[in-house]
Design a binder for these strands. Structure first.
Lengths: 120, 120
DNA sequence: TTGTTTTTACGAAAAACTTCGTAGTTATTT
DNA sequence: AAATAACTACGAAGTTTTTCGTAAAAACAA
């Protein structure tokens, strides 16, 4: 249950747009980089085998749906990332993320709220 | 400048312990998992070629040193990770990290301080 | 109905990453 | 001095991930 970078790209399309055909996903990805139709197809077939996607085969063009939630997947990836890149120190990661990425005042407020909840 | 997982393991050893021989690194890694001496050697040679490590060859056992700083490397990895896993939303990542990882009150305080600085 | 397009399935090549064996050299031990 | 151990260099095999070409089937158009 640890999608590769390419699989993640596809999951993002499905999370954002809901169920899609291979063509729809491929056209979406095509906006950002070169990628052949059969390449996308193959990925989605593999992801289906792995259980990352479900598919509806009633129509000739199959429709695929993400079988894993965005939050769960991101959590899994994050856990792994904190381990490998930050040796388990989530707070160091948070500090670096806040320090070097543009975050809107709204987002900062939201984070502070969570912080309050955690502190009490 | 984007170390793989294995390369990162080695960098962590060098960041924590300073310059090391292959044997020292190998023994360190060996505490956590099976890994052959020549495997570690090969990695460190490759990393040296890539410019990730420097080495001192005056002694027979060469001594290797990290050529990239921990902060810079983590920043690079983090940028990449925010992109691929969180579609660029650093605040979502921060929220998830704070929500699911144990963070000590001290660390929370430190984060709050940074938050204050960013807000004003 | 015949040819063109769309789609799936399959296989396999290409690329990136991981792992280790072997050979040769230098040091150490007996 | 001879055997043993430690170390580097090299090559290559094993894995995982990415990429696509080709063939066959289904839908569509002329």
């Amino acid at each position: 249950m640890k999608p590769t970078d390419s699989e993640l790209e596809i999951l993002h399309v499905l999370w954002a747009n809901g169920p899609c055909t291979v063509r729809q996903v491929n056209e979406n990805l095509g906006q950002f980089r070169e990628i052949g139709y059969t390449t996308t197809l193959k990925f989605m077939q593999l992801m289906h085998e792995k259980g990352l996607l479900t598919r509806d085969e009633t129509a000739r063009s199959h429709t695929y749906t993400a079988a894993v939630s965005q939050a769960d997947t991101q959590q899994t990836l994050l856990d792994r990332f904190v381990e490998t890149a930050f040796k388990g120190s989530a707070s160091t990661l948070v500090m670096q993320a806040l320090g070097h990425h543009k975050t809107t005042p709204d987002e900062l407020a939201e984070i502070r709220e969570l912080l309050d909840k955690l502190t009490k």
